[in-house]
Amino acid sequence: MILDEPDSHFIFVFHPKIFEGKKYTVYEGRELTNGEVLKYWGKWIFFGDKSQLDEWARKLDRYVEDETIPCIKYDRIPPANLGLTELVMMVYCDKRKSEEIWQILQQHGVKIKAWVSEWETMEMWKPGGGAFGTVD
């Protein structure tokens, strides 16, 4: 289901089970431990304008509903505070499922192939990381 709340910067595509307290960080139907999330969790990142990402969200929703794709998140407006002029869409999954999900994305016209792990994201945004800058 597409969760589009106007006050939120992000639009999400979640399985309804999220509202029953289930986690989306799963592999083969099993919830990952925190250690497994750091080891395996990540996302495919790509770009587009609002209409393009809305269309992808609608087309990919069925893969979220059948639990092939665990979660999708995308910007409502370009994150100008990060210096970006396009909207970013992130399709989250376990690394061990990432190629299977990439095939789906490619079938729907995604060309940028960029996998960023949760661990890399944490490294980027911690003090001293590339995205956060250096703390003296």
Binding site: I45, F47, L82, G83, L84, I112, A114, T121, A131
Partner: peptide, 12 residues
């Protein structure tokens, strides 16, 4: 091979 380049800030 395909090489993709994205803005660093998008990776978070």
């Amino acid at each position: 091979d395909e090489v993709s380049i994205i803005p660093f800030a998008a990776g978070g």
